[in-house]
Design a binder for these strands. Structure first.
Lengths: 295, 295
DNA sequence: TACGATAGATAGGCCATGCCTATAGGTCGT
DNA sequence: ACGACCTATAGGCATGGCCTATCTATCGTA
């Protein structure tokens, strides 16, 4: 049973004649007759009564007609669905983001994007890098925002912004008024750092390693705001990325000169995945959105 | 877009692999790949993400999958419908019957058939012969029961029974006790006959013509029972077919010897029409039903 | 890092089958 | 009885689906 057979069948049923149906279907009458006969053979039942002058549906044909139409209708619905989806920016975009980026980078971009494309449903998950990468691999998240670089050439990356690290110092710290400092300068200070697992902790530790600094870590937390309030209370110093600077906190922020004291935040997608228009739009907006001009 | 493409698409979606889908679909992997690609081309959208190890539906593919399945499901439903109808005696049979046969011949046969095939819905229309033949031509009635022969070789006829005509005489008529008579014997009697249009009137008049009898018609009616009660009242004589004899009436019925005083009742269908099993069953039962043994 | 294994894409040839034209057979109307 | 119309049949052509062989890329393993 083939689709063109169903189309021919419906055409004959509507036209009441093989010849006219053939004409309307843009095939020759014999071709159409053949296909109808083939269909009848396969079904094991006649669909039309060929009465000299006119052609009429048999009882079987009458029950078959609505079903054949249903098949063709479903087919058009399928085609239409795809076509519609193709030129509309809609659907769902699931974004993964690491905790050290999420609260600073995303909110304004999300609202900006949502205002621009209200038909797109946004979902955000906040996880540490290895979890996010697994979810990208499994297509559970479409796009992850995290610190570059990432290992594995199954990923495609798009750098979004680079930022330097800043030392967070208590107000009375001796370097609190400096415009910048070197990590070595903090050799004597106790450190407050993010908990293990956060990539920014690794970034910070790596930068210290480069500076031959082996900080004494007296406090670990999962979020910068905890660290900063402890620093503000004078417990020690910390390192934060530029986007995590809280002007209103009791800390002073001084730029760290070391070359390694910087990170690049970027988007990661699974290489080879086809991205919907919504995905592309979101990626583009990560660059374009007015919020990004702030950095 | 072709059905096998949809089948392949669903197979890949289920198997999660082109190779396995090809195996399950009993085609080679390149053939299947080709068809999927062709489908994607036609839709203008990728349906699968080919990621080295595995194959996953794109967003478009995900919306297309249920629609493709719906098409195939509808197709199976269509096929099943026809198959089911093929080996079941069901549906509707519409019977046409002339008034001079309807009340005598049909009732017992209808109930007998309905008891035997309760799934078949019977519809009966009572009309005079030319109307019935038109309706057979238009397939408004599937089968007509009327007096043979009929003109037109677009019809196929099945004789059911032959019956002789009887004279209906008042109880005191001089031939009332005879076993039989000739139409000529009624030369002096006033006649009561069916109204024009009824084929039995034509039968009766034709028989009279043959007998060189030109009866004086003093009453016409659309039904035998009216004629018979008038005859019973002594108004004149009438002619009725055997099946219309009412034993309980005040008339006497005497067989008419004339060769032309007989009719054949039969079934008529449109030549070339395919008859359902229900049609065939009904036709067969017109011969077989116990009621027919009465004649 | 290199290798074999696995999976999908590509190339090229074969053959089924759908389409065509021409024509036959049958019915209808004149 | 003839011409007009409609469907079925016959025979040839070509599109296109399927095949095998091969290529390429990725993955797991040595």
């Amino acid at each position: 049973m083939e689709l063109h057979q169903l189309r021919y069948f419906c055409a004959v049923a509507e036209a009441g004649s093989f010849s006219r149906a053939a004409e309307q279907s843009h095939v020759s009458q014999p071709s159409l007759s053949q296909q109808i006969m083939k269909l009848e053979d396969e079904l094991g039942a006649r669909l039309f009564d060929r009465l000299g002058r006119s052609v009429r549906l048999t009882e079987t044909g009458q029950t078959f007609l609505p079903r054949a139409r249903a098949v063709l209708r479903e087919l058009e619905a399928a085609r239409g669905d795809v076509a519609e989806q193709k030129d509309s920016v809609g659907g769902t975009v699931t974004i993964g983001v690491i905790p050290t980026v999420a609260p600073y980078f995303l909110p304004e971009r999300l609202t900006w994007f949502s205002r621009r494309f209200p038909q797109v449903r946004l979902t955000v998950v906040e996880e540490i890098t290895p979890v996010l990468l697994d979810q990208v691999r499994a297509s559970k998240v479409d796009l992850a925002i995290l610190a570059l670089p990432v290992r594995g050439h199954e990923f495609e990356t798009f750098p979004l912004l680079s930022e330097r690290f800043f030392a967070a110092l208590p107000a009375g710290h001796k370097f609190a008024k400096r415009r910048s400092l070197s990590l070595k300068d903090l050799r004597a200070d106790p450190f407050l750092l993010l908990r293990d697992g956060h990539c920014f902790r690794d970034n910070a530790v790596a930068a210290c390693d480069r500076a031959r600094l082996h900080p004494q870590i007296i406090f670990e937390s999962g979020q910068f705001s905890s660290l900063l309030s402890m620093v503000g209370a004078g417990m020690g110093v910390s390192i934060v990325p530029e986007m995590a600077i809280e002007k209103k906190s009791r800390c002073r922020f001084v730029r760290i000169e070391d070359a390694a004291a910087a990170r690049t935040v970027g988007a990661v997608v699974l290489r080879g995945r086809s991205l919907s228009r919504a995905h592309h739009a979101f990626l583009a907006h990560l660059h374009d959105s007015p919020a990004s001009r702030r950095s």
